[in-house]
Design a protein around this nucleic acid. Structure first.
Lengths: 253, 253
DNA sequence: GCGCTTATATGGTCTATACCGGTCTATACG
DNA sequence: CGTATAGACCGGTATAGACCATATAAGCGC
Protein backbone atom coordinates (compact mmCIF):
# COMPACT_ATOMS: atom_id res chain seq x y z
CA UNK A 1 0.00 0.00 0.00
CA UNK A 2 3.03 2.22 -0.24
CA UNK A 3 1.80 3.79 -3.43
CA UNK A 4 -1.75 4.54 -2.40
CA UNK A 5 -1.09 8.22 -1.93
CA UNK A 6 0.78 8.54 -5.18
CA UNK A 7 -1.84 6.53 -7.01
CA UNK A 8 -4.64 8.74 -5.75
CA UNK A 9 -2.63 11.73 -6.80
CA UNK A 10 -2.21 10.39 -10.30
CA UNK A 11 -5.89 9.58 -10.46
CA UNK A 12 -6.60 13.22 -9.85
CA UNK A 13 -3.95 14.36 -12.26
CA UNK A 14 -5.16 12.33 -15.21
CA UNK A 15 -7.47 9.48 -15.95
CA UNK A 16 -5.96 6.15 -16.74
CA UNK A 17 -5.43 6.10 -20.52
CA UNK A 18 -8.33 4.50 -22.32
CA UNK A 19 -7.73 1.01 -23.63
CA UNK A 20 -6.57 0.86 -27.22
CA UNK A 21 -9.88 -0.24 -28.64
CA UNK A 22 -11.65 2.73 -27.08
CA UNK A 23 -9.05 5.11 -28.46
CA UNK A 24 -9.62 3.62 -31.89
CA UNK A 25 -13.35 3.86 -31.43
CA UNK A 26 -13.09 7.52 -30.48
CA UNK A 27 -10.78 8.15 -33.40
CA UNK A 28 -13.27 6.65 -35.82
CA UNK A 29 -16.17 8.55 -34.31
CA UNK A 30 -14.21 11.76 -34.67
CA UNK A 31 -13.37 10.97 -38.29
CA UNK A 32 -16.99 10.21 -39.10
CA UNK A 33 -18.24 13.33 -37.38
CA UNK A 34 -15.59 15.38 -39.17
CA UNK A 35 -17.10 14.19 -42.42
CA UNK A 36 -14.12 12.11 -43.50
CA UNK A 37 -16.63 9.37 -44.19
CA UNK A 38 -20.10 10.07 -45.55
CA UNK A 39 -23.13 7.93 -44.61
CA UNK A 40 -23.01 4.51 -46.30
CA UNK A 41 -19.41 5.11 -47.33
CA UNK A 42 -17.04 2.20 -46.79
CA UNK A 43 -14.48 2.40 -44.02
CA UNK A 44 -11.03 0.88 -44.46
CA UNK A 45 -11.10 -2.88 -43.98
CA UNK A 46 -10.34 -4.35 -40.58
CA UNK A 47 -6.96 -5.50 -41.80
CA UNK A 48 -6.12 -2.05 -43.12
CA UNK A 49 -7.20 -0.38 -39.90
CA UNK A 50 -5.11 -2.78 -37.86
CA UNK A 51 -2.10 -1.69 -39.86
CA UNK A 52 -2.93 2.02 -39.64
CA UNK A 53 -3.33 1.89 -35.88
CA UNK A 54 -0.56 -0.67 -35.47
CA UNK A 55 -2.74 -3.00 -33.42
CA UNK A 56 -4.01 -6.50 -33.96
CA UNK A 57 -7.11 -7.11 -36.00
CA UNK A 58 -9.01 -8.35 -32.95
CA UNK A 59 -8.47 -5.03 -31.26
CA UNK A 60 -9.82 -3.19 -34.28
CA UNK A 61 -12.79 -5.54 -34.29
CA UNK A 62 -13.50 -4.74 -30.66
CA UNK A 63 -13.73 -1.07 -31.55
CA UNK A 64 -15.86 -1.75 -34.62
CA UNK A 65 -18.23 -4.08 -32.78
CA UNK A 66 -18.78 -1.42 -30.18
CA UNK A 67 -19.58 1.09 -32.90
CA UNK A 68 -22.01 -1.37 -34.47
CA UNK A 69 -23.82 -1.72 -31.16
CA UNK A 70 -24.00 2.06 -30.93
CA UNK A 71 -25.52 2.14 -34.39
CA UNK A 72 -22.73 4.26 -35.81
CA UNK A 73 -21.60 1.75 -38.41
CA UNK A 74 -22.81 -1.52 -39.88
CA UNK A 75 -20.96 -4.43 -41.44
CA UNK A 76 -21.62 -6.74 -44.38
CA UNK A 77 -19.70 -9.96 -44.82
CA UNK A 78 -17.63 -9.94 -47.98
CA UNK A 79 -18.32 -6.27 -48.64
CA UNK A 80 -16.97 -4.18 -45.81
CA UNK A 81 -17.85 -1.84 -42.97
CA UNK A 82 -20.03 1.18 -43.64
CA UNK A 83 -21.08 4.37 -41.91
CA UNK A 84 -24.68 4.15 -40.73
CA UNK A 85 -27.30 6.72 -41.58
CA UNK A 86 -26.96 9.66 -39.18
CA UNK A 87 -28.65 8.93 -35.92
CA UNK A 88 -31.71 10.81 -34.89
CA UNK A 89 -30.69 10.07 -31.37
CA UNK A 90 -28.28 12.97 -31.55
CA UNK A 91 -31.10 15.34 -32.25
CA UNK A 92 -32.86 14.36 -29.08
CA UNK A 93 -29.96 15.24 -26.82
CA UNK A 94 -31.45 18.69 -26.40
CA UNK A 95 -35.05 19.59 -26.42
CA UNK A 96 -35.58 21.74 -29.42
CA UNK A 97 -38.19 24.29 -30.22
CA UNK A 98 -39.46 24.99 -33.68
CA UNK A 99 -36.57 27.24 -34.70
CA UNK A 100 -33.76 24.84 -33.87
CA UNK A 101 -35.79 22.02 -35.31
CA UNK A 102 -36.18 23.65 -38.70
CA UNK A 103 -32.58 24.75 -38.71
CA UNK A 104 -31.46 21.21 -38.01
CA UNK A 105 -33.35 20.15 -41.13
CA UNK A 106 -31.60 22.78 -43.17
CA UNK A 107 -34.47 25.25 -43.37
CA UNK A 108 -34.74 28.95 -42.52
CA UNK A 109 -37.30 29.39 -39.74
CA UNK A 110 -39.49 32.45 -39.40
CA UNK A 111 -42.71 33.36 -37.62
CA UNK A 112 -45.80 35.52 -37.85
CA UNK A 113 -47.32 36.40 -34.51
CA UNK A 114 -51.06 35.82 -34.65
CA UNK A 115 -51.80 36.65 -31.07
CA UNK A 116 -49.79 37.60 -27.98
CA UNK A 117 -51.55 38.58 -24.80
CA UNK A 118 -52.43 37.66 -21.26
CA UNK A 119 -55.69 35.87 -20.62
CA UNK A 120 -57.39 33.79 -17.94
CA UNK A 121 -56.37 30.16 -18.16
CA UNK A 122 -58.92 27.75 -19.63
CA UNK A 123 -59.44 24.67 -17.45
CA UNK A 124 -57.46 22.42 -19.77
CA UNK A 125 -54.52 24.83 -19.87
CA UNK A 126 -54.58 25.40 -16.12
CA UNK A 127 -54.59 21.66 -15.50
CA UNK A 128 -51.64 21.12 -17.78
CA UNK A 129 -49.58 23.91 -16.25
CA UNK A 130 -50.74 22.91 -12.76
CA UNK A 131 -51.94 26.39 -11.86
CA UNK A 132 -55.33 27.49 -10.53
CA UNK A 133 -58.00 27.96 -13.23
CA UNK A 134 -58.61 31.52 -14.40
CA UNK A 135 -55.14 32.61 -13.21
CA UNK A 136 -53.34 34.63 -15.82
CA UNK A 137 -51.45 32.93 -18.61
CA UNK A 138 -49.54 34.26 -21.58
CA UNK A 139 -51.03 33.09 -24.86
CA UNK A 140 -48.65 33.25 -27.79
CA UNK A 141 -50.06 32.11 -31.11
CA UNK A 142 -47.76 32.04 -34.09
CA UNK A 143 -47.71 30.85 -37.65
CA UNK A 144 -44.42 29.05 -38.13
CA UNK A 145 -42.73 29.04 -41.51
CA UNK A 146 -39.79 27.25 -43.01
CA UNK A 147 -38.24 29.07 -45.97
CA UNK A 148 -41.35 31.27 -46.03
CA UNK A 149 -43.66 28.29 -46.48
CA UNK A 150 -46.28 27.82 -43.74
CA UNK A 151 -45.43 24.73 -41.76
CA UNK A 152 -47.37 24.91 -38.51
CA UNK A 153 -49.73 26.86 -36.32
CA UNK A 154 -48.50 26.94 -32.77
CA UNK A 155 -50.14 28.23 -29.61
CA UNK A 156 -48.03 28.35 -26.47
CA UNK A 157 -49.31 28.98 -22.95
CA UNK A 158 -46.99 30.06 -20.15
CA UNK A 159 -47.76 31.05 -16.57
CA UNK A 160 -47.78 34.88 -16.49
CA UNK A 161 -46.70 35.02 -12.85
CA UNK A 162 -43.41 33.37 -13.71
CA UNK A 163 -42.62 35.30 -16.90
CA UNK A 164 -44.18 38.77 -16.42
CA UNK A 165 -41.85 40.47 -18.91
CA UNK A 166 -41.97 37.81 -21.59
CA UNK A 167 -44.20 39.71 -24.02
CA UNK A 168 -41.68 42.54 -24.31
CA UNK A 169 -39.86 40.30 -26.77
CA UNK A 170 -40.73 40.18 -30.43
CA UNK A 171 -41.37 36.54 -31.14
CA UNK A 172 -41.57 37.11 -34.85
CA UNK A 173 -37.81 37.38 -34.58
CA UNK A 174 -36.75 35.66 -31.38
CA UNK A 175 -37.07 32.01 -30.49
CA UNK A 176 -39.15 31.31 -27.40
CA UNK A 177 -36.75 28.60 -26.30
CA UNK A 178 -33.78 30.90 -26.73
CA UNK A 179 -35.41 33.59 -24.57
CA UNK A 180 -36.36 31.09 -21.87
CA UNK A 181 -32.87 29.72 -21.84
CA UNK A 182 -30.86 32.92 -21.93
CA UNK A 183 -33.19 35.42 -20.27
CA UNK A 184 -34.57 33.19 -17.56
CA UNK A 185 -31.68 30.72 -17.35
CA UNK A 186 -33.96 27.73 -17.79
CA UNK A 187 -32.64 24.34 -18.76
CA UNK A 188 -35.46 22.67 -20.66
CA UNK A 189 -34.74 19.00 -20.39
CA UNK A 190 -38.04 17.17 -20.23
CA UNK A 191 -41.24 17.22 -22.17
CA UNK A 192 -44.29 15.08 -22.64
CA UNK A 193 -45.81 14.96 -26.08
CA UNK A 194 -48.98 13.67 -27.62
CA UNK A 195 -49.31 13.35 -31.38
CA UNK A 196 -52.50 12.85 -33.29
CA UNK A 197 -53.45 12.83 -36.95
CA UNK A 198 -56.62 14.73 -37.85
CA UNK A 199 -58.28 16.27 -40.87
CA UNK A 200 -57.47 19.98 -40.95
CA UNK A 201 -60.28 22.30 -39.89
CA UNK A 202 -61.18 25.48 -41.82
CA UNK A 203 -58.88 27.69 -39.78
CA UNK A 204 -55.90 25.39 -40.32
CA UNK A 205 -56.65 25.11 -44.03
CA UNK A 206 -56.61 28.90 -44.31
CA UNK A 207 -53.50 29.58 -42.25
CA UNK A 208 -51.43 26.71 -43.58
CA UNK A 209 -52.61 27.35 -47.15
CA UNK A 210 -53.91 23.83 -47.61
CA UNK A 211 -56.46 22.40 -50.00
CA UNK A 212 -59.23 20.56 -48.23
CA UNK A 213 -59.32 17.80 -47.37
CA UNK A 214 -55.87 17.70 -45.87
CA UNK A 215 -54.26 16.01 -42.89
CA UNK A 216 -52.45 17.78 -40.09
CA UNK A 217 -50.48 16.47 -37.15
CA UNK A 218 -51.76 17.95 -33.92
CA UNK A 219 -49.14 18.07 -31.24
CA UNK A 220 -49.58 18.70 -27.56
CA UNK A 221 -46.47 19.37 -25.56
CA UNK A 222 -45.89 20.07 -21.93
CA UNK A 223 -42.35 21.24 -21.29
CA UNK A 224 -40.95 21.01 -17.80
CA UNK A 225 -37.84 22.63 -16.34
CA UNK A 226 -35.09 20.86 -14.46
CA UNK A 227 -37.07 21.21 -11.23
CA UNK A 228 -40.04 19.44 -12.75
CA UNK A 229 -42.06 22.66 -12.91
CA UNK A 230 -44.28 23.06 -15.98
CA UNK A 231 -42.96 25.88 -18.14
CA UNK A 232 -45.04 25.87 -21.28
CA UNK A 233 -48.01 24.08 -22.72
CA UNK A 234 -48.04 24.11 -26.50
CA UNK A 235 -50.70 23.11 -28.99
CA UNK A 236 -49.49 22.86 -32.57
CA UNK A 237 -50.81 21.77 -35.92
CA UNK A 238 -48.22 20.74 -38.47
CA UNK A 239 -48.87 20.34 -42.16
CA UNK A 240 -48.90 16.58 -42.73
CA UNK A 241 -47.30 16.86 -46.14
CA UNK A 242 -44.36 18.95 -45.03
CA UNK A 243 -43.53 17.62 -41.63
CA UNK A 244 -42.29 14.24 -40.55
CA UNK A 245 -41.74 13.63 -36.94
CA UNK A 246 -38.71 11.45 -36.38
CA UNK A 247 -37.15 10.24 -33.20
CA UNK A 248 -35.35 7.33 -31.59
CA UNK A 249 -36.78 4.98 -29.04
CA UNK A 250 -34.55 3.37 -26.51
CA UNK A 251 -35.58 0.77 -24.02
CA UNK A 252 -34.60 0.43 -20.43
CA UNK A 253 -31.76 2.07 -18.69
CA UNK B 1 -11.36 -30.90 -46.39
CA UNK B 2 -12.47 -34.41 -45.64
CA UNK B 3 -15.76 -33.23 -44.25
CA UNK B 4 -16.82 -30.90 -47.03
CA UNK B 5 -19.28 -33.35 -48.48
CA UNK B 6 -20.82 -34.10 -45.16
CA UNK B 7 -20.96 -30.42 -44.32
CA UNK B 8 -22.74 -29.60 -47.56
CA UNK B 9 -25.18 -32.35 -46.83
CA UNK B 10 -25.89 -30.96 -43.41
CA UNK B 11 -26.29 -27.52 -44.89
CA UNK B 12 -29.06 -28.82 -47.06
CA UNK B 13 -30.63 -30.84 -44.31
CA UNK B 14 -30.89 -28.01 -41.81
CA UNK B 15 -29.71 -24.49 -41.31
CA UNK B 16 -26.02 -24.01 -40.70
CA UNK B 17 -25.28 -24.85 -37.07
CA UNK B 18 -25.03 -21.78 -34.89
CA UNK B 19 -21.52 -20.63 -34.17
CA UNK B 20 -20.04 -21.99 -30.98
CA UNK B 21 -20.46 -18.82 -29.01
CA UNK B 22 -24.19 -18.73 -29.76
CA UNK B 23 -24.55 -22.36 -28.72
CA UNK B 24 -22.82 -21.51 -25.45
CA UNK B 25 -25.02 -18.47 -25.03
CA UNK B 26 -28.15 -20.54 -25.58
CA UNK B 27 -26.85 -23.16 -23.19
CA UNK B 28 -26.30 -20.61 -20.47
CA UNK B 29 -29.69 -19.00 -21.05
CA UNK B 30 -31.30 -22.41 -20.77
CA UNK B 31 -29.38 -23.15 -17.57
CA UNK B 32 -30.39 -19.83 -16.04
CA UNK B 33 -34.00 -20.25 -17.06
CA UNK B 34 -33.95 -23.78 -15.68
CA UNK B 35 -32.96 -22.34 -12.33
CA UNK B 36 -29.48 -23.85 -12.24
CA UNK B 37 -28.28 -20.40 -11.29
CA UNK B 38 -30.27 -18.06 -9.07
CA UNK B 39 -30.24 -14.27 -9.51
CA UNK B 40 -26.96 -12.77 -8.34
CA UNK B 41 -25.41 -16.22 -8.13
CA UNK B 42 -21.93 -16.55 -9.57
CA UNK B 43 -21.46 -18.41 -12.81
CA UNK B 44 -18.35 -20.54 -13.38
CA UNK B 45 -15.36 -18.40 -14.28
CA UNK B 46 -14.51 -17.81 -17.90
CA UNK B 47 -11.59 -20.19 -17.63
CA UNK B 48 -13.78 -22.90 -16.13
CA UNK B 49 -16.44 -22.46 -18.78
CA UNK B 50 -13.84 -22.66 -21.52
CA UNK B 51 -12.78 -26.05 -20.12
CA UNK B 52 -16.34 -27.29 -19.69
CA UNK B 53 -17.30 -26.42 -23.25
CA UNK B 54 -13.85 -27.32 -24.58
CA UNK B 55 -13.45 -23.98 -26.35
CA UNK B 56 -11.04 -21.13 -25.94
CA UNK B 57 -11.65 -18.47 -23.35
CA UNK B 58 -12.24 -15.82 -26.03
CA UNK B 59 -15.14 -17.83 -27.39
CA UNK B 60 -16.67 -18.06 -23.94
CA UNK B 61 -16.20 -14.32 -23.56
CA UNK B 62 -18.04 -13.69 -26.82
CA UNK B 63 -21.03 -15.56 -25.43
CA UNK B 64 -20.84 -13.80 -22.08
CA UNK B 65 -20.50 -10.33 -23.60
CA UNK B 66 -23.62 -10.90 -25.66
CA UNK B 67 -25.48 -11.95 -22.52
CA UNK B 68 -24.27 -8.82 -20.76
CA UNK B 69 -25.64 -6.70 -23.60
CA UNK B 70 -28.95 -8.48 -23.28
CA UNK B 71 -28.97 -7.75 -19.57
CA UNK B 72 -29.03 -11.43 -18.60
CA UNK B 73 -25.78 -11.37 -16.65
CA UNK B 74 -23.34 -8.82 -15.33
CA UNK B 75 -19.62 -8.97 -14.59
CA UNK B 76 -17.38 -7.64 -11.84
CA UNK B 77 -13.66 -7.46 -12.31
CA UNK B 78 -11.86 -9.63 -9.81
CA UNK B 79 -15.07 -11.21 -8.57
CA UNK B 80 -16.78 -13.02 -11.37
CA UNK B 81 -19.86 -13.18 -13.57
CA UNK B 82 -23.31 -13.10 -12.05
CA UNK B 83 -26.91 -13.70 -13.07
CA UNK B 84 -28.80 -10.42 -13.38
CA UNK B 85 -32.00 -9.72 -11.50
CA UNK B 86 -34.88 -11.24 -13.47
CA UNK B 87 -37.96 -10.03 -15.25
CA UNK B 88 -38.73 -6.52 -14.18
CA UNK B 89 -35.39 -5.21 -15.33
CA UNK B 90 -35.74 -7.39 -18.38
CA UNK B 91 -39.12 -5.96 -19.18
CA UNK B 92 -37.89 -2.41 -19.06
CA UNK B 93 -35.06 -3.25 -21.35
CA UNK B 94 -37.25 -4.13 -24.31
CA UNK B 95 -39.43 -2.15 -26.64
CA UNK B 96 -43.10 -2.87 -26.97
CA UNK B 97 -45.05 -3.91 -30.00
CA UNK B 98 -48.68 -3.33 -30.78
CA UNK B 99 -50.00 -6.02 -28.44
CA UNK B 100 -48.22 -4.80 -25.33
CA UNK B 101 -49.01 -1.24 -26.34
CA UNK B 102 -52.74 -1.79 -26.50
CA UNK B 103 -52.69 -3.84 -23.32
CA UNK B 104 -50.90 -1.00 -21.54
CA UNK B 105 -53.79 1.23 -22.56
CA UNK B 106 -56.25 -1.22 -21.11
CA UNK B 107 -57.46 -2.61 -24.41
CA UNK B 108 -57.73 -6.15 -25.70
CA UNK B 109 -55.48 -6.54 -28.75
CA UNK B 110 -56.25 -8.85 -31.63
CA UNK B 111 -55.16 -9.24 -35.23
CA UNK B 112 -56.31 -10.35 -38.65
CA UNK B 113 -53.52 -11.55 -40.88
CA UNK B 114 -53.88 -9.94 -44.30
CA UNK B 115 -50.77 -11.38 -45.83
CA UNK B 116 -47.88 -13.54 -44.66
CA UNK B 117 -45.30 -14.70 -47.13
CA UNK B 118 -41.75 -14.47 -48.37
CA UNK B 119 -41.01 -12.05 -51.18
CA UNK B 120 -38.06 -10.27 -52.75
CA UNK B 121 -37.13 -7.13 -50.89
CA UNK B 122 -38.13 -3.84 -52.49
CA UNK B 123 -35.24 -1.35 -52.66
CA UNK B 124 -36.60 0.72 -49.78
CA UNK B 125 -37.06 -2.31 -47.55
CA UNK B 126 -33.65 -3.72 -48.42
CA UNK B 127 -32.00 -0.40 -47.63
CA UNK B 128 -33.74 -0.15 -44.27
CA UNK B 129 -32.83 -3.71 -43.27
CA UNK B 130 -29.39 -3.28 -44.80
CA UNK B 131 -29.63 -6.40 -46.91
CA UNK B 132 -29.03 -6.80 -50.62
CA UNK B 133 -32.01 -5.82 -52.81
CA UNK B 134 -34.19 -8.69 -53.99
CA UNK B 135 -32.97 -10.96 -51.20
CA UNK B 136 -35.83 -12.70 -49.46
CA UNK B 137 -37.84 -10.97 -46.76
CA UNK B 138 -40.84 -12.02 -44.76
CA UNK B 139 -43.80 -9.74 -45.32
CA UNK B 140 -46.37 -9.84 -42.57
CA UNK B 141 -49.37 -7.59 -43.08
CA UNK B 142 -51.94 -7.44 -40.32
CA UNK B 143 -55.02 -5.51 -39.38
CA UNK B 144 -54.63 -4.65 -35.72
CA UNK B 145 -57.67 -4.29 -33.55
CA UNK B 146 -58.30 -3.07 -30.04
CA UNK B 147 -61.43 -4.49 -28.45
CA UNK B 148 -62.44 -5.68 -31.93
CA UNK B 149 -62.31 -2.16 -33.39
CA UNK B 150 -59.87 -1.66 -36.27
CA UNK B 151 -57.04 0.53 -35.09
CA UNK B 152 -54.21 0.12 -37.55
CA UNK B 153 -52.89 -1.59 -40.63
CA UNK B 154 -49.39 -2.83 -40.09
CA UNK B 155 -46.90 -4.34 -42.51
CA UNK B 156 -43.71 -5.76 -41.07
CA UNK B 157 -40.67 -6.85 -43.05
CA UNK B 158 -38.05 -9.17 -41.60
CA UNK B 159 -34.98 -10.77 -43.19
CA UNK B 160 -35.99 -14.32 -44.12
CA UNK B 161 -32.46 -15.64 -43.76
CA UNK B 162 -32.48 -14.83 -40.08
CA UNK B 163 -35.98 -16.05 -39.27
CA UNK B 164 -36.63 -18.94 -41.64
CA UNK B 165 -39.24 -20.58 -39.41
CA UNK B 166 -41.06 -17.42 -38.41
CA UNK B 167 -44.13 -17.97 -40.55
CA UNK B 168 -44.92 -21.24 -38.82
CA UNK B 169 -46.44 -19.10 -36.07
CA UNK B 170 -50.00 -17.87 -36.22
CA UNK B 171 -49.73 -14.14 -35.85
CA UNK B 172 -53.45 -13.71 -35.49
CA UNK B 173 -52.86 -15.12 -32.03
CA UNK B 174 -49.20 -14.60 -31.20
CA UNK B 175 -47.37 -11.32 -30.79
CA UNK B 176 -44.46 -10.83 -33.17
CA UNK B 177 -42.39 -9.26 -30.43
CA UNK B 178 -43.11 -12.10 -28.06
CA UNK B 179 -41.99 -14.65 -30.65
CA UNK B 180 -38.84 -12.71 -31.46
CA UNK B 181 -38.02 -12.47 -27.78
CA UNK B 182 -38.76 -15.97 -26.62
CA UNK B 183 -38.15 -18.02 -29.73
CA UNK B 184 -35.12 -16.19 -31.02
CA UNK B 185 -33.90 -14.76 -27.71
CA UNK B 186 -33.78 -11.23 -29.07
CA UNK B 187 -33.61 -8.20 -26.86
CA UNK B 188 -35.21 -5.40 -28.85
CA UNK B 189 -33.79 -2.27 -27.37
CA UNK B 190 -33.56 0.38 -30.06
CA UNK B 191 -35.87 1.69 -32.72
CA UNK B 192 -36.07 4.63 -35.00
CA UNK B 193 -39.47 6.01 -35.84
CA UNK B 194 -40.91 8.45 -38.29
CA UNK B 195 -44.45 9.73 -37.92
CA UNK B 196 -46.48 11.52 -40.53
CA UNK B 197 -50.08 12.65 -40.84
CA UNK B 198 -51.78 11.94 -44.17
CA UNK B 199 -55.26 11.65 -45.62
CA UNK B 200 -56.26 7.99 -45.69
CA UNK B 201 -56.18 6.31 -49.08
CA UNK B 202 -58.98 4.05 -50.34
CA UNK B 203 -57.40 0.88 -48.98
CA UNK B 204 -56.96 2.37 -45.53
CA UNK B 205 -60.53 3.70 -45.54
CA UNK B 206 -61.81 0.22 -46.31
CA UNK B 207 -59.69 -1.74 -43.85
CA UNK B 208 -59.96 0.71 -40.99
CA UNK B 209 -63.68 1.26 -41.64
CA UNK B 210 -63.31 5.02 -41.99
CA UNK B 211 -65.50 7.58 -43.71
CA UNK B 212 -63.59 9.61 -46.25
CA UNK B 213 -62.02 12.03 -45.88
CA UNK B 214 -60.18 10.84 -42.78
CA UNK B 215 -56.72 11.29 -41.37
CA UNK B 216 -54.32 8.50 -40.51
CA UNK B 217 -50.96 8.50 -38.82
CA UNK B 218 -48.38 6.72 -40.91
CA UNK B 219 -45.56 5.24 -38.90
CA UNK B 220 -42.26 3.89 -40.09
CA UNK B 221 -40.21 1.93 -37.60
CA UNK B 222 -36.85 0.25 -37.84
CA UNK B 223 -36.20 -1.98 -34.86
CA UNK B 224 -32.67 -3.04 -34.06
CA UNK B 225 -31.43 -5.78 -31.72
CA UNK B 226 -28.88 -5.41 -28.98
CA UNK B 227 -26.10 -6.17 -31.44
CA UNK B 228 -27.15 -3.28 -33.66
CA UNK B 229 -28.56 -5.54 -36.38
CA UNK B 230 -31.82 -4.45 -38.04
CA UNK B 231 -34.56 -6.90 -37.11
CA UNK B 232 -37.77 -5.53 -38.54
CA UNK B 233 -38.96 -2.68 -40.70
CA UNK B 234 -42.57 -1.80 -40.07
CA UNK B 235 -44.95 0.47 -41.94
CA UNK B 236 -48.17 1.20 -40.12
CA UNK B 237 -51.23 3.36 -40.56
CA UNK B 238 -53.13 4.21 -37.41
CA UNK B 239 -56.64 5.63 -37.31
CA UNK B 240 -56.17 9.25 -36.36
CA UNK B 241 -59.36 9.38 -34.32
CA UNK B 242 -58.56 6.37 -32.17
CA UNK B 243 -54.87 6.59 -31.68
CA UNK B 244 -52.84 9.19 -29.91
CA UNK B 245 -49.14 8.73 -29.83
CA UNK B 246 -47.74 9.83 -26.50
CA UNK B 247 -44.21 9.75 -25.25
CA UNK B 248 -41.69 11.54 -23.11
CA UNK B 249 -38.76 13.47 -24.42
CA UNK B 250 -35.65 13.75 -22.37
CA UNK B 251 -32.65 15.80 -23.25
CA UNK B 252 -29.02 15.06 -22.70
CA UNK B 253 -28.85 12.74 -19.73
C1' DG C 1 -20.87 -12.28 -75.99
C1' DC C 2 -22.16 -15.71 -72.39
C1' DG C 3 -21.51 -18.83 -68.65
C1' DC C 4 -18.21 -20.88 -65.70
C1' DT C 5 -14.23 -21.20 -62.81
C1' DT C 6 -10.75 -18.98 -60.16
C1' DA C 7 -8.56 -15.52 -57.49
C1' DT C 8 -8.89 -12.23 -54.10
C1' DA C 9 -10.89 -9.28 -50.80
C1' DT C 10 -14.06 -8.87 -46.84
C1' DG C 11 -16.13 -9.61 -42.27
C1' DG C 12 -17.14 -13.71 -38.91
C1' DT C 13 -15.43 -17.24 -35.99
C1' DC C 14 -12.05 -19.55 -33.18
C1' DT C 15 -7.60 -20.85 -31.05
C1' DA C 16 -3.70 -20.32 -27.88
C1' DT C 17 -1.24 -17.34 -25.21
C1' DA C 18 0.12 -13.38 -22.45
C1' DC C 19 -0.09 -9.68 -19.19
C1' DC C 20 -2.79 -6.21 -16.43
C1' DG C 21 -5.17 -4.55 -12.38
C1' DG C 22 -8.92 -5.62 -9.00
C1' DT C 23 -10.42 -8.97 -5.25
C1' DC C 24 -9.94 -12.20 -1.81
C1' DT C 25 -7.66 -15.25 1.47
C1' DA C 26 -4.19 -17.78 3.84
C1' DT C 27 -0.09 -17.23 5.93
C1' DA C 28 3.86 -15.15 7.96
C1' DC C 29 5.43 -11.31 10.54
C1' DG C 30 5.68 -7.69 14.16
C1' DC D 1 -3.67 -10.27 18.16
C1' DG D 2 -3.75 -7.42 14.25
C1' DT D 3 -1.88 -6.56 9.91
C1' DA D 4 0.96 -6.81 5.87
C1' DT D 5 2.11 -9.46 2.04
C1' DA D 6 2.25 -13.19 -1.26
C1' DG D 7 -0.32 -15.73 -4.17
C1' DA D 8 -4.45 -17.46 -6.41
C1' DC D 9 -8.19 -16.27 -9.05
C1' DC D 10 -11.11 -13.04 -11.50
C1' DG D 11 -12.56 -10.36 -15.70
C1' DG D 12 -10.40 -6.95 -19.22
C1' DT D 13 -7.22 -6.14 -22.78
C1' DA D 14 -4.19 -7.42 -26.48
C1' DT D 15 -1.45 -10.30 -29.74
C1' DA D 16 -0.78 -13.29 -33.98
C1' DG D 17 -2.45 -16.46 -36.64
C1' DA D 18 -5.85 -19.67 -38.84
C1' DC D 19 -9.94 -21.04 -41.46
C1' DC D 20 -14.80 -20.05 -42.96
C1' DA D 21 -18.62 -18.24 -46.04
C1' DT D 22 -19.77 -14.44 -48.79
C1' DA D 23 -19.14 -11.13 -52.45
C1' DT D 24 -16.93 -9.33 -56.54
C1' DA D 25 -14.13 -9.10 -60.35
C1' DA D 26 -10.83 -11.23 -63.48
C1' DG D 27 -9.85 -14.83 -66.51
C1' DC D 28 -11.16 -18.72 -69.37
C1' DG D 29 -13.55 -21.73 -72.54
C1' DC D 30 -17.09 -22.03 -75.62
Amino acid sequence: MVYTGLYDFMQLQRQAPDPLYLQIKDGLIAAIRAGDYAPHERLPSERELSEQYAVSRMTVRQALLSLVRDGVIYTRVGKGTFVAAPKIDQQLRTLTGFSQDVQARGGRPSSRVLDARVIGAAPEVAAALRITPQSEVIRLARLRLSDDLPLAVETAYLPFARFPALLTHDFAVESLYAVLEHQYGLALTQAEQVLEAVVADAEEVRLLELTAPAAVMRMQRLTVDSDGEPVEYVLSSYRGDRYKFRFALQAGR
